[in-house]
Write a protein that binds this DNA or RNA. Structure first.
Lengths: 102, 102
DNA sequence: TATACTAACTTACATAAAGTAAGTAAAATG
DNA sequence: CATTTTACTTACTTTATGTAAGTTAGTATA
């Protein structure tokens, strides 16, 4: 086993190849969203969404904001690092338009 | 559950979010390769690599060529559809260089 | 006041996916 | 004839994900 692949690229792929991560980021590109809204828009279970959002927060890709209104509102949004993934998502979008059938 | 996401994009993400798929494609961007070479370069197990290559072949992203030499040589390479994923990979590469530490 | 409802989770349990290691077949090499 | 290599497959274990129910806090409804 002699890995020749760039460790940074490998790490990046490690994120994106976790189920739902890409779709969560893609969804947040259109603006801050609440937990239940992400949940229903992509169809991920609450259990996994909660896990993913924590991981993405730890990686500095997503941030969690608490608005102390009544009732309290919690919003998730992309950090700079997260927004920087937009070109990746746009290329994915193009590829899917050009090469995939519905 | 009211999914608002583009089904093609969702499908594309479905591929890339399977473990190893992205790295296999990335590896094949540098040219045709044999089974054991992919296996050792990215560190995937033979069991999963075999599964992924079959899936990618069925999707028309990868093709399998058998060269009837002695011993027989089997090479995997990207189809047009597979090569079309290069921009996605390049953007991933850029992002990983700019935002990830080793 | 009791009941129900919503958001944002967590917990417990079941199923699916991936890892590990050994096995197979066909040919080449020592 | 025994061993090695390539390209897999099979059996079994561990990890990841899905499902469904429960929790906490506040809001609305009867």
């Amino acid at each position: 086993m002699d890995k020749s692949i760039c460790p940074r690229f490998e790490k990046a792929m490690g994120f994106l190849s976790q189920r739902w991560t890409g779709l969560i980021i893609y969804q947040l590109l259109s603006g801050p969203q609440r937990f239940c809204s992400i949940e229903s828009s992509i169809g991920v279970s609450g259990r996994v969404l909660s896990e993913r959002l924590k991981d993405l927060e730890n990686e500095g890709i997503v941030k969690r904001d608490v608005f102390p209104e009544t009732p309290v509102r919690i919003e998730y949004s992309l950090t700079k690092k997260g927004v920087a993934l937009e070109p990746v998502m746009r290329e994915m979008e193009k590829w899917s338009q050009n090469w995939l059938e519905i």
